[in-house]
Design a protein around this nucleic acid. Sequence first.
DNA 1: ATGACTCCCAGTGGGAGA
Length: 254
Amino acid sequence: MKLATWNVNSLGVRLPQLLDWLAANPVDAIVLQETKLTDDRFPRSEIEAAGYRAQWFGQKTYNGVALLAKDEPLDIVRNIPGFADASARVITGTVGGVRIVGGYFPNGQAPGTDKFEYKMQWLRALREWLAGELAAHPGLVLLGDFNVAPEDRDVYDPVAWAGQIHCTDEERAHIRQLLGLGLHDAFRLFEQPPKSWTWWDYRNLAFRRNQGLRIDHILVSEALKPRVKACTIDKAPRRNERPSDHAPVIVELD
DNA sequence: ATGACTCCCAGTGGGAGA
């Protein structure tokens, strides 16, 4: 079973690239972030024609998430139950017996801002809800755009980024607390090339210079950990003519 | 270097992203 996550930075713009990618990488399920589409504009028919069932949750201009799977996702939950949120950021469903939680974590803008405080509250609410979700569904994957680089080795220039958004101690502490629920960073279960990133700034020729961050993650529960056979970042879509600034991440379970 | 790019909604610029 293969699962993937990809921040497409506008599904309206990136749909052809998504369909190309799914044709070349026929994963069992994929979660998307930053669809930036209201629900009435979601390209359901094109995605179904590609052999995927879909559940989606969007809004105008910002955010928006979707869960695509070859088998119909079951028991769908939108956002974090009990946490009032104006943003469409989480979609959860069960595929092949695996509870899949796809998230577009808040950016947070900068420490000290209201948006940073919202990010902290959101992360806390996610963790509190996930604790119960894990108890109910031991086979669980939390994946998506976390907007946090967990360690310095996930940052191309950790000195320049020290204390900056995505790299603050507060954000990293939240990631450690998520791991403390019994989740494991699938990417780090394997030896990986140094300077592995999932996002590169559009500016400064950052992709060509491989100046990026690893902020898109796949966390697997204790029960799933023994089944993880590989976890990789696919940089190929980042080389497209009009790419998303993020690359897909894929995990393979046996 | 208070930038650089891309997307969106707007409306002939500005917010947001990361």
